[in-house]
């Protein structure tokens, strides 16, 4: 038997979708999305160091509908990955492994990340002084 042809973990398609596995996959997806999002962070900082014109280009992009859509996605990705990351850290010290606790913490993470995303955007628009 050729060892390199064996099925390798993780082979996700054999499992029934559940909250636990969906949140686990979402943790990875948001992590990869945030890695891509670092490009905006770097662009923003390098532009700020380069001068007002370059900075204005970044501000214009962030203010465009595509920029806002990406920023909304990244806000959720960041807050979800943060909340679920804390859930992982709590598991790492050995707490919350009972099935009921795993589901409870999962729903808390869903609620917290969605709620915080909405809160951050409301505060963000308020801080801009009500302008769009």
């Amino acid at each position: 038997m050729q060892s390199d042809k064996r099925p390798l973990s993780p082979h996700l398609q054999v499992y029934k979708p559940q909250l636990t596995s969906m949140l686990s996959i979402l943790h990875r997806l948001t992590g990869v999305a945030l890695a891509a999002g670092t490009l905006l962070l770097v662009w923003w900082l390098v532009a700020a160091a380069a001068g007002p014109e370059a900075f204005g280009t970044v501000q214009a992009f962030v203010g465009s509908w595509l920029g806002r859509l990406l920023l909304l996605g990244w806000t959720f990705a960041l807050l979800y990955h943060l909340c679920n990351g804390v859930r992982h850290l709590v598991w790492d010290v050995g707490w919350g492994f009972e099935l009921t606790q795993v589901y409870a913490s999962g729903w808390i993470v869903v609620g917290a990340s969605v709620g915080l995303t909405i809160l951050v955007w409301i505060l963000g628009y308020a801080a801009r002084g009500g302008g769009i």
């Binding site: 700020a48 204005g56 943060l82 850290l89 963000g124 628009y125 801009r128 002084g129």
Partner: peptide, 19 residues
């Protein structure tokens, strides 16, 4: 965890900043 919380709050606080 603390760095991201600080960053998100700070960015909100500086939303309207010019260059």
């Amino acid at each position: 965890v603390p760095l991201v919380i600080w960053f998100v709050i700070s960015v909100i606080a500086h939303m309207g900043d010019d260059y």
